[in-house]
């Protein structure tokens, strides 16, 4: 299975870094789409099919947590795999994100951590939100 991947981060350099990590990770990548905030990301997901979202949390306009809440409430998008890629360290917030069915990796991260997070999602080991 080749993943259609959406990279959501307000910093264009970080989007580039995450994209490079994805291509180095060994994941089968179909299309790669980028968005700079949650609103742009939702628009992208309504425009084209996305299998996997790599999501920053601290963003202007609509942050990652708000975006994830909207995705899980949308009947069409709710099953999308989401990996949060963030500097976030607050355990209550991370627990909340995981409860919404997201995997979590901490910035800075290594490509193999990304693969592990995706595998965790595919195996259904994360959260209970979906």
């Amino acid at each position: 299975m080749a993943f259609s991947i959406l990279v959501v981060d307000d910093n264009r350099l970080m989007r580039g870094m995450v994209t490079r990590a994805v291509t180095m990770s060994g994941l089968a990548v179909g299309t790669l789409v980028e968005a700079g905030d949650g609103v742009q990301a939702l628009a992208a997901m309504r425009r084209e099919w996305i299998d996997l979202v790599l999501l920053d949390i601290n963003m202007p306009v609509m942050d990652g947590e708000q975006f994830l809440t909207r995705v899980r409430a949308d009947p069409v998008l709710s099953k999308t795999l989401v990996v949060v890629v963030s500097t976030e360290s607050s355990q209550p917030r991370i627990a909340r994100l995981k409860a919404m069915g997201a995997a979590f990796i901490h910035k800075p991260f290594r490509p193999e951590e990304l693969v592990a997070a995706v595998n965790e999602l595919m195996a259904g080991k994360v959260g209970g939100g979906t």
Binding site: N11, N58, T87, Q91, P92, R93, K107
Partner: peptide, 19 residues
């Protein structure tokens, strides 16, 4: 951004939320 996110838990622990 990444430094701030990594320093706050060093300073204050992991149990609290910082925006």
């Amino acid at each position: 951004n990444v430094l701030a996110g990594n320093l706050l838990p060093v300073l204050y622990g992991l149990d609290h939320e910082f925006h």
